[in-house]
């Protein structure tokens, strides 16, 4: 009972970015979504070895933890379903039919689940409690990543094939604006009352006014900027540059570069470990890189083909893995 509760609390902290690093602690399990071979890899953080390969239907990409931390939803895009997993054991609880679930995320107030249908050019807003579709927004083309305003008033979605960012007002359930932001927008992040959008066909990200969609500033990080992540202590902004093959740490206030790390193989998503290390999926290398930002040391761990989303649970152990997987 207490073990379960501690897991829930810890996951909620990590998902909200509130967990402070504790340098000497690196236990737990990591779940990696292998989008190219219909499986999930479970990696032991102690041994840095894959301890289980869980088969899924088609193409798992991203995940979202429910606001209460009790359910881990993994989107199987081509399989058209959300896999509802126990975040402690990764046991499958149920399959929820959902069209084309690519990127997904719960609103900070816990009321909505936004699901980007990357291949179907639609953004679906679900009632988080019931997983009933509240409204569908046809948004051509290729809705990719998303981020919410902290007050849950809006969700911002990058439209990869039209170089746009869309803002959806969740109070009126209407599209507030759609604006050009730069070439091939991908990762989206809310930071310091602004929306940051990584540009895959450019050399960094843009800073966008969330009220109007106007681009206010461009920040250089490297060619093929793909994803943006804020460190759990909110001091460091991490940017993965797909073409440059780098992961760059920036001061989250000034955007001044702190350090650049060479990460080959198409760096994609990042999960932050309590010991301060970054677990980075390498999309084209079939590996996960574990980066120690302090030393710059990098270790790679073999997983399945095209690892994409990555979920880290420091409270889980190999012993807690479900026997049913």
């Amino acid at each position: 009972m207490f073990r379960r509760l501690s897991i829930v609390v810890l996951l909620a902290m990590l998902s909200s970015g509130a967990g402070a690093p504790s340098p000497a602690w690196a236990h737990g399990l990591v779940l990696v979504m292998n989008s190219g071979e219909a499986s999930l890899s479970v990696v032991d953080m102690d041994t840095h070895r894959e301890v289980r390969r869980i088969p899924v239907l088609r193409e798992p990409h991203h995940w979202a933890l429910t606001p209460d931390g009790r359910d881990l939803l993994v989107g199987d895009t081509a399989g058209n379903e959300l896999l509802d997993l126990d975040p402690a054991t990764f046991a499958l609880r149920r399959r929820v039919p959902v069209a084309d679930p690519y990127q997904l995320g719960f609103s900070p107030d816990g009321k909505f689940l936004t699901v980007n249908g990357n291949g179907r050019n639609q953004v679906d807003i679900y009632d988080a409690a019931t997983l009933k579709l509240a409204k569908r927004f046809p948004l051509p083309r290729t809705p990719s990543h998303l981020a919410y305003a902290p007050d849950s008033s809006r969700v911002f979605v990058s439209l990869q094939d039209t170089d746009e960012l869309a803002a959806i007002d969740l109070r009126t359930m209407a599209v507030a604006w759609v604006q050009k932001v730069g070439r091939v927008p991908a990762g989206v992040l809310w930071l310091n009352n602004r929306v940051l959008v990584a540009l895959m066909n450019d050399e960094g990200f843009v800073v966008v006014d969330p009220a109007t969609g106007r681009v206010e500033r461009r920040v250089h990080t490297g060619a093929g900027a793909h994803q943006l992540f804020l460190s759990p202590d909110k001091k460091v902004l991490w940017v993965n540059n797909r073409v440059a093959g780098t992961t760059v740490a920036l001061d989250s206030e000034t955007f001044a570069e702190i350090r650049s790390y060479r990460i080959t193989g198409g760096p994609d998503d990042i999960a932050f470990a309590p010991d301060g290390k970054l677990w980075i999926t390498q999309r084209f290398a079939r590996t996960v890189a574990v980066l120690d930002p302090a030393s710059g040391g990098i270790e790679t761990i073999a997983v399945g083909r095209q690892p994409h989303g990555i979920f880290l649970n420091p409270a889980a152990t190999a012993a807690t893995l479900s026997a049913s997987n």
Binding site: T142, Q160, D161, R183, V184, M200, N201, A223, G224, R242, V243, G245, T264, G265, G266, F284, A285, R286
Partner: peptide, 20 residues
């Protein structure tokens, strides 16, 4: 395939403005 992607295809797509 990963090597091809990283060292030949991605740079070409980037140069051509076709990263999508």
């Amino acid at each position: 395939a990963g090597w091809l992607q990283e060292h030949a295809i991605l740079p070409a797509l980037y140069a051509l403005g076709l990263m999508n």
